[in-house]
């Protein structure tokens, strides 16, 4: 275990958010058991008050997840000089197998918390709160996820010893490696582009169609497309987008983008991708809720907002990714 301030901050913060979420799910459980929308007893009033506390606990939890995601990557980057062979964040993550798992759980937790907060807002717009039960049941699932995040993070950091010799992007993302990630890097840019551009094109077409039509099927298709596009985009970042951003023919690291050296370009890039994905999921998720009379008007109204935000996010992502391809002197694919 390394007594590094960033690590202590992350572990302390995770512990705090687990405590907040345990409190929230305790309250959520009471509400699930006792809620009676037709009653006006003092007890019901107290339960209604509790819904406010839960909302704000979850809002705090989401805010925390976003900051702690950034802090996690920054910390992993900051401690890489402790490990022989590590030249950036990838090296630290490799020092211990759990590292990548932490990243995955953090990503899941971000999406879960964000979806919860958004659907909670939607539910609060209606007078009869039709999503009350599913909402608090979902809360009971998010809490163990946060707990998993804490324990994985602990085992990751406690398993880090300064004398570990690790491998870094050079070997992990090298085209000769054997891991999944090196498969991605080995994904020839041409293949990656052949997957990436069509799926992005489909995304744009579907989003524009959704903006013009109320059709639920289109929204389900968009939902699936967004998920596929998200993973292809991540693969594309490793396979060729990073090469253009770094202007180097074999630098595949997805984390160096977040460094001051590259003007923190990775932050808007990933924010665009995550935001675009999150809001692209929403119309498809909300479409089945249209049958609640108290929600349908609100969904119609929010649907357009979501589609626009998603569109803006994806466009930011795409603009940053494509900029150096179109305007920088570096060329990966030589003609002829």
């Amino acid at each position: 275990m390394i007594l590094h301030p960033g690590i202590l901050a992350l572990l302390g913060g995770s512990l705090l958010s687990v405590l907040l979420l345990i409190k929230a799910s305790g309250l959520g459980l009471t509400i699930l058991l006792r809620w009676d929308g037709t009653s006006s007893s003092e007890q019901q009033l107290a339960l209604e008050h509790k819904t406010w506390l839960i909302s704000s606990l979850l809002n705090a939890g989401l805010g925390f997840q976003i900051v702690s995601g950034v802090l996690f990557l920054a910390t992993v980057e900051a401690i890489h000089p402790l490990f022989v062979g590590a030249m950036c964040a990838t090296g630290t993550l490799n020092a211990n197998l759990v590292g990548w798992l932490v990243l995955l759980v953090k990503g899941l937790l971000f999406f879960a918390a964000a979806l919860w907060v958004i659907f909670n807002r939607l539910d609060q717009r209606s007078e009869d709160a039709p999503l009350l039960r599913p909402k608090y049941l979902a809360l009971l699932l998010i809490t163990p996820l946060a707990f998993l995040d804490l324990t994985l993070q602990y085992s990751f950091f406690s398993g880090l010893h300064p004398d570990i010799i690790t491998s870094c992007c050079g070997s992990l993302f090298s085209e000769q490696g054997q891991s999944v990630l090196s498969e991605l890097a080995a994904l020839p840019p041409v293949t990656a582009m052949a997957l990436f551009f069509p799926v992005i094109a489909i995304y744009y077409v579907l989003t524009l169609c959704c903006l013009r039509s109320q059709n639920a099927l289109l929204r389900y298709l968009l939902f699936i497309t967004v998920i596929v596009a998200f993973f292809i985009a991540l693969a594309a970042i490793i396979s060729f987008i990073s090469l253009y951003l770094y202007q180097m023919p074999s630098h595949h690291c997805p984390f160096d983008l977040l460094q001051a050296h590259y003007n923190y370009i990775g932050y808007p890039l990933y924010a665009g991708l995550f935001g675009g994905t999150l809001f692209g999921l929403l119309p498809g998720l909300a479409a089945p809720l249209q049958h609640h009379p108290s929600l349908s008007a609100h969904i119609d109204q929010l649907d357009r907002h979501w589609l626009w935000i998603s569109l803006i996010g994806m466009t930011v992502f795409l603009a940053i990714a494509l900029w150096p391809m179109l305007f920088a002197p570096f060329t990966l694919l030589r003609s002829g």
């Binding site: 929308g37 037709t38 006006s40 007893s41 009033l45 209604e48 609060q124 007078e127 709160a129």
Partner: peptide, 22 residues
């Protein structure tokens, strides 16, 4: 505040069970 029983209508709409924000 909300009644223990009975109803209040405002402008033709029952308001006695409305959530607090409304």
């Amino acid at each position: 505040s909300r009644p223990t029983s009975g109803q209040v209508w405002f402008d033709g709409k029952s308001i006695s069970r409305l959530p607090e924000r409304f």
